[in-house]
């Protein structure tokens, strides 16, 4: 057995290589005073991470760091000593991060989930928006709340943007398919563009289907039947 000795009890003997980097820190002077908070954003989505970072900077925070992979958290903690961690809930490595924090409990820098000590509405809002935060113990709830409020609203705005973008993209796709089907009808039936469009629309209405579905069927059929 490779014998590590001298550990007082079972809590403190869990080891994780990256964690050892910030063992000595203890509670930072920052959180004791009114000085500025250090914030770490962990988000695999680079665009969203930037949006959150911008929001924090606009709100006057200057100690903001961003990482895209939880694996970097050990190194970043050493460099930036975060008081608040903001992480997206899509991140599959959230369990890893929590385990990492649970190990740190024994090492003088306890980190807890922020929503744990906030009100039910805040918890609900954060989970619904897809964001969570962890804070260094001893940090006042009032100091973190504006950060969470900002993160929640920006996560929601980002999700809305993504939905709209997705919708615009699918509308564009639909339009392309309809144009293609229209061209096939014009070529094979010798119709004008307006008449081809009207035929597509009437067929869709008669069959109680969407125009794009009719267009898709027509394109498939045309492909099968050849030129």
């Amino acid at each position: 057995m490779n014998g590590a000795v001298g550990y007082p009890h079972v809590h403190s003997i869990r080891a994780f290589s990256a964690l050892a980097l910030f063992v000595s820190s203890g509670i930072s002077a920052r959180q004791m005073s009114n000085a500025e908070l250090s914030i770490l954003i962990i988000d695999e989505n680079r665009i969203r991470a930037t949006i959150i970072e911008d929001g924090l900077r606009e709100a006057g925070h200057t100690h903001v760091a961003v990482i895209h992979d939880v694996n970097e958290v050990g190194r970043t903690i050493k460099e930036t000593m975060p008081d608040v961690f903001v992480i997206d809930l899509e991140n599959p490595k959230r369990d890893m991060l929590e385990h990492f924090f649970s190990l740190s409990r024994a090492i003088e820098r306890p980190i807890a989930m922020f929503v744990d000590r906030s009100d039910g509405v805040m918890i609900e809002k954060a989970v619904a928006a897809g964001v969570s935060a962890y804070v260094v113990d001893g940090l006042k709830k009032e100091r973190v709340k504006p950060i969470m409020d900002m993160a929640i609203s920006r996560f929601n705005a980002f999700a809305r943007l993504r939905r709209e973008l997705e919708q615009a993209r699918s509308e564009l796709e639909d339009r392309k398919l309809i144009d293609q089907a229209k061209a096939i009808i014009m070529r094979t039936r010798g119709l004008s563009e307006a008449d081809a469009y009207s035929l597509l629309r009437t067929t869709a209405m008669n069959q109680n289907r969407r125009m794009v579905d009719i267009a898709q069927s027509l394109i498939t059929a045309a492909d099968l039947l050849g030129p």
């Binding site: 057995m1 490779n2 014998g3 590590a4 550990y7 079972v10 003997i13 869990r14 080891a15 994780f16 290589s17 599959p92 490595k93 369990d95 890893m96 929590e98 385990h99 990492f100």
Partner: peptide
């Protein structure tokens, strides 16, 4: 089996698919 999990090895957490 005679291995002390907290001293002799490291145990880390990762989601199943990773």
């Amino acid at each position: 089996s005679g291995i002390r999990p907290d001293r002799d090895v490291e145990i880390v957490v990762l989601p199943p698919p990773l």
